[in-house]
Structure formats: structure tokens, C-alpha cells
Design a protein around this nucleic acid. Structure first.
Length: 300
DNA sequence: GCGTCCAGGTCTACC
DNA sequence: GGTAGACCTGGACGC
């Protein structure tokens, strides 16, 4: 496979660690070797894919077991997950001169890792609600271990994220007792059943021609998806204005700006509103700027 | 060792 | 339309 072309100043480490998804299977990330692993379903089969970048700005190298068609599809999946075709230049231009955010332009940040499917992103987001990150990991790991498809048929090979059909077929007790999804189990089951039956086309939501209102309406009809889930789904879909506030965001914002007076959301909109239509992404990049310190490459 | 609290929220019932 | 209270689970914390 020839090297994959990347946007200017693309830094795999910054992109991958931009939010928590790299920590949830089937994704895994080895920071020392700057290697991201994923297990997408390609032509219905789970394929183990590795993508690495030796240094920031270097070309991406991809390894996927399979023929030419599989290689080509794997490349498309990687481009999609890393948002290599998104043009963030308007945001990067806009933050010039803002001491809180100019780092993002310097380091090409803002490409939030997403799953190969909207279905996977939504299920994972539902698994982050009202619980600790460690419990989110438990639920997602159980879903993958119990219901995912093994790549290459090897006994200890990595598994893909389960299909809606697999989750729907697993049933309520399984989701409660094996996955440990608790009260979320009926939400997950209903979502899986609707998608599996073709009543809900989540993948369509990534199509830019679908209006924002329709995206909101569709997601709000999913049981268990409230403002936090809908906002963050929008962000994963590439619509960056929503704030997606959760308890961590609120606490982190107060940490960065302890003198905030009045309503938090009003203050946040006041601070980042000038970056529309990237209000929520600008907020996120500010909150997470500390995650990328100390790993900077000095560009010529 | 045990009880309590709450976390990267949302739903329902009730005002 | 606004807001308590309930909700699974597991980890942190106090005693």
C-alpha cells in the first residue's frame, strides 16, 4: 500500500489522543511507536488494521491483511476515522493570535478520532453516560469480546465492534448481565433492533446533505440520548458548533477560568462564539490543550 | 469490611 | 417548560 496522503502538519498522536476513543476497543494505540490499531468490518469480515506515523508530518503507513480490495477499503476507513479529508484551515486561521488556541493551528489539531460506523460511535457514547470512564471501558470491552467478530479467525485475534444484528440478537439479559450495561441495556437493545431492522439509518447522518435539524431529531428519538449524547454525536459527525458539556468539561472549564461569573454555558458561548461554526470544537481544544504538551515537534 | 457518594446523563412523573 | 427522583455499575472515600 502506498503511503496515505495527509493534511498539512498532520500529527497522528495529536489526532488520536484528541479524545478518549483510542482507549476503547476495537481501537488501541501504542504511543511509543505511534501506532493506531483498529478492526473494521470490510466486506463483512473483521480485518486487523495498523496505521503508524514515524514523526509528526511524516506520511502514514498502513498495514492490513488482505488483497488489494481490502487494502483499498482499509485506507478509506482510516481516512474516515482520522478525518483526513476534512478542511480545518478556516478554524486554524481563526485561532491565530488567541493564546489559548493558537497551539491547535500550530499542531494541526482538531481531527477527532471516530469509529468506522455511526452505530459504533453512538453506542460508545451511550456507554459514557452517567458513569466513570472505567465502567465505559468495561461495557465496550464486553460488547467487543462477547459479540464482536474475530479478525482472521485466530483464537486470540482482535475483534471488531459488534454489528447491530449481533447486539439485537444478544438480548436484554445478556446486555445487562454480561455486558454490564445496567439500565442502559434496554436503550442499547432498542437502538440495535431499530438499526438491524432497517428502521433507522444512522450511517446516513454522516452525509453533509442531511440537515442539522434532521440529525438532531433523529438522534433525540434514540432512547438514552439526551443533550450530551446528541451534542457529542454532532461533533463526531463533523458538525462542530454544539458544546457537548459534561461534568468533566464543566469542571475543566472552571479550572482554566476560575473567575467565571454567572451561567457556565453563557460564559462559554461568549468566549468561543467567535469561532462559529466551530464553537464546540474550539471549547474542546482549549479544555484539552494540556494533553498534548511536551510532545511537540518544532517545525521549520 | 461496609456504607455512601457519584461519575464524561437521561427518563419519567409531577408541578 | 421546568425540575426532583430513580437508575445500573464500580471505584473512591470515610469510618
Amino acid at each position: 500500500v502506498p503511503p496515505i496522503s495527509t493534511p498539512p502538519r498532520f500529527d497522528l498522536d495529536v489526532a488520536v489522543r484528541g479524545h478518549g476513543w483510542y482507549d476503547l476497543p476495537p481501537f488501541s494505540y501504542d504511543r511509543a511507536t505511534r501506532t493506531l490499531r483498529l478492526v473494521p468490518l470490510i466486506e463483512g469480515k473483521a480485518i486487523a488494521v495498523r496505521v503508524c506515523q514515524s514523526t509528526p508530518g511524516a506520511t502514514l503507513h498502513l498495514l492490513a491483511m488482505g488483497g488489494r480490495i481490502v487494502q483499498r477499503r482499509a485506507e478509506q476507513v482510516v481516512a474516515l476515522c482520522l478525518r483526513l479529508d476534512e478542511d480545518l484551515a478556516p478554524l486554524h486561521r481563526a485561532v491565530a493570535g488567541d493564546p489559548a488556541l493558537e497551539w491547535a493551528a500550530r499542531r494541526g489539531a482538531g481531527r477527532l478520532l471516530r469509529a468506522p460506523t455511526v452505530w459504533e460511535d453512538l453506542v460508545k457514547l451511550l456507554c459514557t453516560t452517567n458513569c466513570t470512564w472505567s465502567l465505559t471501558r468495561v461495557m465496550v470491552r464486553n460488547l467487543v469480546d462477547e459479540l464482536g467478530e474475530r479478525a482472521g479467525g485466530d483464537a486470540d485475534a482482535a475483534r471488531s465492534f459488534p454489528t447491530p444484528q449481533a447486539v439485537a440478537h444478544a438480548g436484554l439479559d445478556f446486555l445487562r448481565n454480561k455486558v454490564r450495561a445496567g439500565y442502559r441495556a434496554p436503550f442499547l437493545l432498542e437502538l440495535a433492533a431499530r438499526v438491524a431492522a432497517g428502521q433507522l439509518d444512522l450511517e446516513r447522518l454522516r452525509d453533509p446533505v442531511v440537515g442539522e435539524d434532521e440529525v438532531n431529531r433523529t438522534l433525540r428519538q434514540v432512547k438514552g440520548a439526551g443533550p450530551y449524547v446528541v451534542d457529542n454525536m454532532q461533533r463526531l459527525l463533523g458538525r462542530y458548533d454544539a458544546l457537548g458539556l459534561d461534568s468533566w468539561c464543566r469542571a475543566r472549564y472552571r479550572e482554566l477560568y476560575p473567575r467565571t461569573r454567572g451561567g457556565l454555558e453563557v460564559a462559554i458561548r461568549r468566549r468561543y462564539g467567535r469561532y462559529r461554526p466551530y464553537t464546540g470544537l474550539a471549547l474542546w481544544l482549549d479544555l484539552t490543550r494540556g494533553w498534548h504538551e511536551g510532545s511537540e515537534k518544532v517545525w521549520p
